[in-house]
Write a protein that binds this DNA or RNA. Sequence first.
DNA 1: TAGGCCATCTGGTCCT
DNA 2: AGGACCAGATGGCCTA
Length: 107
Amino acid sequence: MTEERVKKLKVRRSKANTRERNRMHGLNEALEVLREYVPCYSKTQKLSKIETLRLARNYISSLAGILKNGVKPDTITFAKTLTDGLSQNTMNLVAGSLQLNPRTLMP
DNA sequence: TAGGCCATCTGGTCCT
DNA sequence: AGGACCAGATGGCCTA
């Protein structure tokens, strides 16, 4: 491979890295917006990416259930649906935001 | 100190 | 040829 070719490939890789970085920043911005739409949003105690996605999924599921049945569940049932499959830490945050004792969400 | 989370780099694949 | 997207690897930081 000629020196010129190697140089060209390095430049191309460097540009690709920059684009990839920007792409991931865009993805993170979108995730940040999503964080604001799910319960227990906090600027100081941010949920992890995976927990944000799981909570969003549960939240959508809860809201869909309310629309389908036309009945609003009690707070504990609502909170249990929201925290299904989430970490203990996130459960505590959700419980706090709904002014519930975290113990009420224990399995 | 181990495990979780994250940012970044990288090579592969697909599309224009 | 070059850009977008993706998944794996790696190293740094934080916390239980």
